[in-house]
């Protein structure tokens, strides 16, 4: 099979080659970075995977990912409130998060069904509107666990709730294998693989096939008996729920539950990663999502020490922002060109 690389992938590969050359020049230790990259990949990768159901059904890129992420934040907060620790804590976080994501996703999906053809811009605004709404919730929600509340005053949730003593690193530290100087977080990777398997299976069901048909030719799908709104709603709920799972995994790796504006920082990198992996808003495969997530995280990890050593320290973050947002813009440009072709 011939592999055709899209421009975003080519740009990032060139950048990666430059970073690797720079890394060798400054004598950067590569093995710790490789180990770290696997954690970062799985930690962020599920959010990238969460984009797939909506793209699969032709709804486009999920710019409204904060909806799913917020559902996870509520889910984890509930687990902490009930003082559920360790594996039980993480599992119940997942269950709460998914349940809330289904409700949020249904509302979000109904909104997108009324805005067919403008889902992406609607998603951006849903995301931006949803976060302040949740901010109000965080300040007034009746949580009582002292570890969650502002230390002074004791009212409202604090911006960063530590997961220490709850389920911090629960996946990261499960089944870690040492291969020479590289450590492989097998537990985390297996969980990631499980999510991949679930998505692959869903795509093979009758509903999964109906989603693909809607993307390829919605008129055909309708005449063949597909209930367009129902299947699209299903795709949005799935994307939202998987994003929620992704947020739970991210938080256990990060060690904190980051409330308030934290959720807004994660959407664009996930979208960008998928596009770097060769996906687009009309077509993206699981391979695109996996490859993109790894490339994006590896490049980011590498660029910080290299830029610090060779150039000015802040440059790495600036470059990351330029690449993240530039790639999204580029993908939109390409989309326009395909539409007019």
């Amino acid at each position: 099979m011939r592999i055709k690389l899209k421009p975003p992938t080519i740009v990032i590969l060139i950048y990666l080659a430059m970073l690797l050359a720079g890394g060798f020049y400054v004598g950067l230790p590569l093995f710790p970075i490789l180990s770290e990259s696997m954690v970062k990949f799985a930690m962020n990768g599920i959010m990238v995977l969460s984009l797939l159901p909506m793209i699969h059904a032709g709804v486009g890129l999920n710019f409204g990912m904060p909806v799913g992420l917020s559902a996870a934040l509520v889910g984890m907060s509930l687990a902490i409130q009930f003082k559920l620790q360790g594996g039980v804590g993480f599992l119940s976080s997942l269950v709460f998060a998914i349940a809330i994501a289904v409700v949020f996703g249904a509302a979000y999906g109904k909104l997108l069904n009324r805005l067919k053809g403008r889902e992406e811009i609607a998603g951006v605004f849903t995301g931006f509107a949803f976060i302040p709404l949740m901010n109000i919730f965080w300040t007034v929600a009746p949580f009582t666990n002292r570890q969650m509340l502002y230390p002074v005053g004791g009212v409202g949730l604090r911006p960063k709730i530590s997961l220490d003593g709850y389920f911090r690193f629960i996946l990261d530290e499960t089944l870690v294998i040492q291969l020479g100087k590289i450590s492989i977080p097998l537990g985390l990777l297996l969980f990631y693989a499980l999510v991949v398997a679930v998505i692959a299976l869903i795509f093979k069901t009758q509903n999964g096939k109906a989603m693909a048909a809607l993307r390829l030719n919605s008129g055909f799908a309708r005449l063949s008996g597909v209930d367009e709104n129902r299947v699209r709603l299903l795709a949005v709920i799935l994307s939202t729920a998987i994003a929620a799972v992704g947020m739970c995994v991210y938080s256990q790796s990060f060690g904190f539950v980051q409330l308030y504006d934290g959720a807004s920082m994660l959407t664009f990198p996930a979208l960008s990663a998928l596009l770097i992996g060769g996906g687009g808003s009309r077509q993206a495969t699981i391979t695109n999502a996996v490859a993109g997530a790894y490339l994006y995280q590896f490049v980011y990890l590498l660029s910080v020490p290299v830029a610090n050593a060779i150039l000015i320290p802040e440059l790495a973050e600036l470059l990351r922002m330029i690449i993240t947002n530039g790639v999204i813009l580029f993908a939109m440009l390409m989309e326009r060109r395909w539409q007019h072709a």
Binding site: A212, A213, L216, N217, G219, F220, L223
Partner: peptide, 9 residues
């Protein structure tokens, strides 16, 4: 072509 087939499948 418009409604009877998925041309890209």
């Amino acid at each position: 072509k418009e409604l009877g087939l998925m041309l890209h499948a």
